[in-house]
């Protein structure tokens, strides 16, 4: 069964149509990349999938692990195994990263019918995941993303993903604002999380990220539609030729 099946998805933001018929299927173990210029609908796609109420799905169907996502609120999608790594992770003053992670992990575990983790088990899990995604202890103690650098925020997103062990990881322009070292650390974390039963949707403007997270499939998103799909070589093609071919054709 497909992990994510998007069929003729239409969506709008503040009554403005953005996505105009997206079709995409991700099977477990696959990494799909969506590339596109600014304004093509990349972030709208990730937000509609994650259940942001500021975005309205106006048509089509999305099945996540066989369930119609219309039946699931954002937190239920997360509990069912969908994870969105934000382009701009939100700063939350007054809640420590540790407290936040514990609440999230236990919310997901409750859905899965597993016991709640106590403080000791939770710390063990933190230690285990720190081997996958390196994160400084002081960042775990501090308020969620508060005063974190751009790289630290993105690393925190990937650390959260490691903690929650989702079935599908959606990375929304995770490379934006990262220098080459941070990009490598974040990519190493994602690569360590790749597994035969986990899928990824990597959304990016630039090919650079795909040097580190090598995709199985690449799709080009322009004006709310996928205009071309191919293998990883398509990313290199885009790097050389840019998006102009499609943008001009559509008369943007």
């Amino acid at each position: 069964m497909a992990l994510l099946e998007i069929k003729d998805l239409h969506a709008s933001v503040a009554d403005k149509p953005i996505l105009k018929g997206i079709n995409l299927t991700i099977k477990p173990g696959e990494v799909h990349a969506i590339m596109g210029p600014n304004g093509s609908g990349k972030s709208t796609l990730s937000n509609v999938l994650a259940g942001n109420e500021a975005y309205t799905k106006t048509g089509g169907q999305v099945l996540f692990d066989g369930i119609d996502i219309d039946d699931l609120a954002a937190h239920e999608r997360a509990r069912a195994g969908m994870f969105l790594a934000f382009q701009y992770p939100v700063e939350i003053a007054g809640i420590s990263n540790m407290y936040f992670l514990k609440a999230a992990v236990n919310a997901v575990r409750e859905y899965q019918g597993k016991d709640q983790l106590d403080a000791m088990d939770f710390l063990d899990l933190i230690e285990e995941k720190k081997k996958v995604v390196k994160i400084r202890d002081d960042l775990l103690e501090r308020a969620v993303n508060s005063g974190f650098s751009g790289g630290e925020k993105k690393r925190n997103e990937i650390f959260q993903m490691a903690m929650l062990e989702p079935k599908l990881g959606i990375l929304d322009e995770t490379d934006s604002g990262l220098d080459i070292d941070a990009l490598r650390i974040v990519s190493d974390g994602v690569n360590a999380l790749r597994s035969p039963d986990r899928g990824f949707l990597v959304i990016t403007h630039y090919q650079r990220l795909l040097d580190y997270i090598v995709p199985d499939h690449v799709h080009v998103l322009v004006h709310g539609q996928i205009v071309k799909s191919g293998g990883k070589e398509l990313a290199l093609e885009l790097e050389n030729e840019g998006y102009n071919t499609w943008v001009d054709e559509k008369g943007a």
Partner: peptide, 21 residues
């Protein structure tokens, strides 16, 4: 919304953010 995407339901998220304040 950020808390929700991490599996935390709106009622608990509301309480967490209010306490954080």
């Amino acid at each position: 919304y950020y808390l929700q995407t991490r599996g935390i339901d709106p009622v608990q998220g509301h309480a967490m953010l209010t306490f954080a304040f």
